[in-house]
Design a protein around this nucleic acid. Structure first.
Lengths: 167, 167
DNA sequence: TTTAATTTTCAGAAAGTTTTGAAAATTAAA
DNA sequence: TTTAATTTTCAAAACTTTCTGAAAATTAAA
């Protein structure tokens, strides 16, 4: 297997993983390409390497920038924009955790907060609803705390929350 | 907000969360419905409550059973099958972690194992490829170890692996 | 200023996923 | 055995997401 084949395999696999995690394939592939590239790349190079349209490349580079995973660079004498990615896998993880927390956990927390405030509990069904809502709220709050400390990079706090979560 | 509205909101929100995590909406909604129900439900009740077709209900109940999250029950004198779900949120989490690990992490681990075995390293690009592959392999292996101990329910081991991951 | 390079946007097309509904298969009661 | 209830399957339809490509907007060199 030569570099081209290996790169292709890496990028494909990363794309599949991304799509299973709610990150679109093109976005994951662009990130993989930038990860493997020792230098920053232009939109045209991304298009060429990944065989995708300008629109697609542009939109997904923007999305990666929004996620705080990719950065723009200007080179002296060059008109085009160059893109590079964060390569520290732990920083990437923290960044993704922070973003997903904001986008996904927060709405669920909000919903559960509304639920536990309700004054239901007459019927069997209502009792079950309140019970599950409370249990889930407790869990989601702890999980969120763990994620929050993780994205803050506070290891001690993270371990503490994890211990609580596990007990 | 009465029970019906609250239930509806809970189920909808759970469906959205599911779809962001690669679990399809119907599957997440069925799980939510069963979570909130104090008794086990038939396919017809699921269809009725969630306004979905028999085919869809059947397929997704099967999928939940495959994931080890839902169980079948036969009631004496009843012809129909009744379904109920695991309600312990921590057990659910472990189960999901175990399944996703099997389905998603394993292929990536395998790919990375192939990559680090390659004998590349002449050009700058090849060096970068090997470097990133090795770093990612290290990270994914540790993450996988954490997940594995989590799904085994081995808290001590989980904390140990997490400590390593964080340092 | 023009002009040319580059980036962004977005409507429509393509691709992918989910859902339906009805027919086929299975199961168990009569 | 029938017969009827129930579950499963799957082709086609509906829906959702992603992608393209060309036009519009922006940027900066000439």
């Amino acid at each position: 297997m030569d570099l081209e084949q290996a790169k292709y395999r890496f990028i494909q696999e990363w794309g599949v993983l991304g799509s299973q995690w709610g990150i679109n394939r093109a976005m994951a592939q662009i990130q993989a390409l930038l990860l493997l590239s020792p230098k920053s790349l232009t939109t045209d190079e991304i298009m060429e390497e990944l065989k995708m349209s300008r629109g697609n490349a542009n939109m997904n580079v923007r999305a990666l920038i929004d996620w705080g995973l990719v950065f723009k660079e200007y080179k002296p004498g060059e008109r085009k924009e160059f893109f590079y990615t964060e390569k520290d896998v732990w920083k990437i993880t923290k960044q993704v955790a922070a973003e997903r927390r904001k986008r996904e956990i927060l709405p669920v927390k909000q919903m559960l907060n509304e639920m536990v405030e309700l004054d239901l509990g007459k019927s069997e069904e209502e009792k079950e609803f309140m019970k599950i809502s409370k249990e889930f709220k407790g869990f989601v709050d702890k999980m969120d705390g763990a994620l929050e400390s993780m994205s803050r990079g506070d290891k001690t706090w993270f371990m503490k929350v994890m211990m609580k979560l596990l007990s």
